[in-house]
């Protein structure tokens, strides 16, 4: 009787498996689409600039950092090895945009569950869909930013070649997955501890300065020494690898070595694995904890 009924589903409390599976999530593509549409429709509702805000924000940040670090503090970018570019703004943007994308996914992801209390308490659907829809909405903006950045690279006399471009796309997918894993953690953590959202702001600021975005990593290498423990620890930061890889493909026009991509992929798999595991363990009680 069990086998003949395809619609049968069981949920039983076992310690390590939650009520839904990854297949549920994939089957919910229609829901994802609608949640994403909702996100896009309501995010800039009743603002004059509308979607323009999603582009204006990174542009403003790039401008500010360029003025402060490139003009006032005169930080010198490493000249591009292959493309011949030597433009601080592009050098900065190639690493800053991926970091901002990551930070936005984690920060807004933290609110994706508590901001949808009414849905979670009224209807059952795979809860990860909320985090995923938020990721897609951020990814959409990031993709536009990347296109604009590539146009800028061309305007400044750089070149775009197929292999680095393909690697950029691969890196974008990996970074999105890495951010998704972290957002799964930040979203449930915020439900259980509301402080998380405020703590995250601080954490992200520290993380930003701990990543060589507006300063070249050579500065840290000189200060700490290549073989020092400090430098090894410094390089454990996943975002250091990610931003360096993005800078390679977009600004330098080269492909990062396979080792870097391997490390980055490793971080991604771990983040998604841990995020998924923790989310599954805690999602069962979401409706009552919210």
């Amino acid at each position: 009787m069990i086998a003949e009924n395809a619609n049968r589903r069981t949920h039983r409390l076992t310690r390590f498996s939650g009520p839904s599976g990854i297949r549920d999530l994939l089957a919910a593509h229609e829901l994802l689409r609608n949640l994403w549409l909702r996100e896009v429709r309501t995010k800039y509702r009743r603002t004059t600039l509308g979607q323009g805000w999603s582009l204006l924000n990174p542009v403003a940040q790039i401008t500010i950092y360029s003025v402060v670090f490139g003009y006032v503090l005169r930080i010198k970018p490493t000249p591009a090895t292959s493309s011949g570019l030597d433009v601080f703004v592009l050098w900065l943007a190639a690493a800053l945009l991926p970091f901002l994308f990551f930070a936005t996914v984690v920060n807004t992801g933290a609110l994706s569950l508590i901001g949808n209390t009414n849905l979670i308490q009224k209807v059952y659907f795979p809860r990860e869909a909320l985090v995923l829809a938020n990721l897609f909405s951020c990814l959409f903006s990031f993709a536009i930013e990347l296109v604009v950045l590539h146009v800028a690279v061309l305007l400044f006399g750089g070149t775009i070649r197929i292999l680095p471009l393909a690697t950029t796309i691969l890196l974008t997918i990996l970074l999105a997955a890495f951010a998704f894993g972290m957002a799964l953690l930040s979203s449930v953590a915020t439900v259980y501890f509301r402080d998380t959202q405020h703590l995250l702001t601080l954490l992200m600021m520290a993380w930003f300065y701990a990543t060589p975005i507006f300063y070249p990593i050579a500065l840290i290498r000189q200060r700490l020494g290549v073989d020092s423990t400090g430098y090894v620890l410094y390089r454990l930061n996943p975002m250091e690898r990610f931003t360096a890889a993005f800078r390679d493909t977009i600004y330098n026009g080269t492909v990062p070595d396979l080792g870097t991509i391997g490390i980055v992929a490793g971080y991604t798999v771990s983040a998604v694995g841990v995020g998924h595991f923790v989310f599954r363990r805690l999602e069962g009680r979401l409706a009552e904890e919210l």
Partner: peptide, 16 residues
């Protein structure tokens, strides 16, 4: 409806 997860026991539903 699976909004809440029971502490113990089992619920089987057949159909949407």
């Amino acid at each position: 409806t699976r909004i809440l997860l029971p502490n113990r026991g089992q619920i089987v539903t057949r159909g949407s």
